[in-house]
Amino acid sequence: MRNSYRVHAALFFVALIYAANYSLSKDVMPRYMGPFGIVTLRIVGAALFFGIIHRIVAPQDKLVGRADNLRAIACGICGIGVNQLLFFSGLNLTSPISASLLQTIAPIVVVIASAILLSEKITLPRVLGIAVGAFGAGLLILSRNAQAAIYPHATLGNTFILANATVFGLYLVLVQPLMRKYHAFTVLARIFLVGAFIAVPFGWREALTADYGHFPLHIWLEIGYMVIFLTILAYLLNNWALKYASPALLGVYIYLQPVLAVLIAVSLGKDHLTWGKAGQAVLIFLGVWLVSRKPKAVAEPEVPLVAVQD
């Protein structure tokens, strides 16, 4: 029972970390640093951390074989490099609430990718869920509201966020065999190293030319939050919780993340919840719920926690 409480605490904390990022990142971007600069700091910091910890905790554990090494490269590209570049580019252009809602599309992508790559069964309710979720996401991406003056390029930003959720959903399918076969730090060290090679060419200039000497204390704290909490701690807690959490429990926390993001964004004055966004959220949540339903007499692979990621 005590371990169950720890799992709930870990999953809630991960959801809270990701939810807060939608609003906190808006303080940093684009006034103090561009999105690619933030991504570079995050990924390089995490790559160094996981590389050092891997050497200490599991120095003998190494990826073996051409297939696993190629899979790790694909995971680093989809789950770290491209994923983060798309996410922060999109968040820079759209509102925190829109970005958090579109992130919940990832479980739908997981089901589609599993059907294509792992020959998983797609039932009629799942087909309906994919259609409903896609319709809700399409409405959200194309919607124009009173905040159009604040986010004039919101449609492009929403498209980036949707692409981010798509590549991250693909990553969740690709990384599962590696997580089951190797130590978590072995996999994380490798994929963040690959991600660094993807991100640094895009963001090194923004990271080096930022006017760090004029950063207020709260901006330093928010950048530290994105590197330490959002990247390192969230990945550690998430991987630990995935060993014990059921798919149903993970589904609850998938829905919780945008709810928390809305509460934080509204309370900080970063965004406003409208009836239009609420209706689009209902469609997306309904689609994810239908997709996440377990087919009869078929074992369902665990649906990883998405948030991610961020």
Rank of each mutant, 00 (worst) to 15 (best):
H214V: 01
I38V: 15
L91D: 08
S25E: 06
D271R: 13
K181T: 02
A67M: 07
V291H: 00
R205W: 04
Q103D: 06
I17S: 04
I219D: 09
V291S: 06
P247W: 03
L208C: 13
N164M: 04
A281I: 01
I161Y: 08
G136S: 01
L217Y: 13
K296Y: 07
L193E: 00
I223C: 12
D68I: 11
L178W: 13
L260Y: 08
F12A: 11
A19Q: 00
R293Q: 15
I141Q: 13
L283V: 06
F285A: 10
I284T: 03
T155M: 15
I232G: 15
C78K: 09
L172E: 01
N92R: 10
A210I: 03
I150G: 13
W220N: 05
G133H: 14
L16P: 02
V266T: 08
K62P: 05
L237S: 11
K26A: 03
G251Q: 01
S4C: 01
V44K: 01
A199K: 12
I77A: 11
I122T: 03
G90Q: 03
M29C: 04
L174S: 13
D271I: 10
T209R: 12
W240D: 01
R180L: 08
Q309M: 10
G157P: 03
A15F: 09
A165H: 06
L162A: 13
W204P: 01
A207K: 10
D27P: 01
R180C: 00
A115S: 11
T274Q: 11
L273C: 09
I254L: 09
S246W: 07
V57G: 11
A265Y: 10
G203Y: 02
G90V: 06
P152I: 07
A307C: 02
Q176S: 13
V308S: 12
L16Q: 06
T94E: 04
A184E: 06
G269L: 03
L11M: 11
A58E: 00
S98F: 07
H153I: 00
S114A: 15
R293V: 02
I52S: 06
L63P: 10
L156C: 12
Y253C: 12
L118N: 15
Y253S: 14
L128R: 14
K26G: 02
G269Q: 03
P247L: 05
I80L: 04
D211K: 14
H183V: 05
H272A: 11
T231W: 03
L305K: 07
G169L: 02
T94L: 08
S246H: 14
L118V: 14
G79Y: 09
I43K: 07
N3P: 04
H183R: 12
I122G: 04
S23Y: 02
A58T: 08
A72L: 07
V109C: 07
L85K: 08
I232K: 15
T155I: 14
H214T: 02
S143F: 13
E120S: 12
R66W: 00
V262A: 11
A115V: 03
T274F: 11
T155F: 12
Y18G: 00
A307I: 05
G203P: 09
G251R: 02
